[in-house]
Amino acid sequence: MSEIFWPADYVPGFTDNFCSNEVIVAGLTATELWPFLNEPERWPTYYSNAADVRFYDGKGPQLQAGMRFFFSTFGFPVEAQVVEHVPSIGGQPARVAWHGWSGDVGAPDRLDVHHAWLIEDLWGGRVRILTQETQKGAPARELAKADPNPMINGHQQWLDGMVAAARAAKA
């Protein structure tokens, strides 16, 4: 199976917080799931923790390499820039990742994240969705101590919602 590509400053284990969620389901493909991830305006329709999606510079509604966008999640207003964008073509895994931030540089409430996604078809008509996020800053240190972990639980809701939305669209 494929893995996430990490920028040097965001390698898991060397940041303040890390979460990883994965599902493997039968009956869907990476191509069928891709629009539900690649079009952020869809996120609030199946994931209650995403809101206020907007794009900059006349871009959107689909993500693309280098584009800036905004959304709210986990109580944070997140500015984001896509740093990796590879659609599922020819059986290759789909990949999207963004650097997200909230707060001013140097501020005590500054949060920086690298949020990466991988969607890959597996043998037997299955698909794997992996999302991992590393975080830096005081808010990340607080999130890492929370029990239950809001990042793990929230991202699992995102995955489950995406699968349900893709299944409903296919029906």
Rank of each mutant, 00 (worst) to 15 (best):
Q81Y: 01
P61N: 08
V105G: 01
T73P: 00
A97Y: 03
G103H: 04
V113R: 00
R126Y: 06
V127H: 06
G66H: 04
V86G: 02
F71S: 01
E84M: 06
P40V: 09
E79A: 07
G91A: 03
K59L: 09
P61F: 06
Y56M: 05
L118E: 15
R42P: 02
G90H: 08
G106N: 13
H99E: 13
R110P: 02
H99L: 11
D104K: 10
S72G: 13
Q92C: 04
W117P: 11
A107N: 13
I129M: 14
A94M: 13
P44I: 08
L111W: 00
D112T: 03
V86H: 01
D57I: 07
P44H: 10
L63N: 02
V105I: 14
V53H: 07
V105E: 13
L33H: 06
I89N: 12
H85E: 06
G75R: 02
R110V: 01
D57H: 14
S88C: 15
P87N: 07
A107C: 12
G100Q: 03
P44F: 06
L37Y: 01
F76G: 01
P44R: 07
V83D: 09
P40N: 11
P61D: 11
P108D: 14
E79R: 05
W123T: 08
R54D: 13
D109A: 13
P87T: 05
A80W: 01
V127T: 12
R42M: 04
V78S: 05
F74K: 00
F74G: 02
V78K: 06
R110K: 15
F36V: 03
P35M: 10
F71W: 11
S102E: 10
F76T: 00
Y47S: 04
G66V: 14
N49Q: 14
T45E: 08
S72M: 09
W101R: 05
W123V: 11
G124Q: 13
P108F: 10
A50Y: 05
S72H: 08
F69E: 01
Q62M: 09
G75T: 10
E39H: 10
P35N: 10
V78E: 02
R95G: 08
G103T: 07
D57A: 13
G60D: 08
V113G: 02
S88M: 04
E84A: 13
E79G: 03
E32Y: 14
S88P: 15
V86N: 11
R95L: 11
F36R: 00
Y56F: 14
W43V: 00
G125N: 04
A51D: 10
H114F: 12
R95W: 12
V86I: 06
V127S: 05
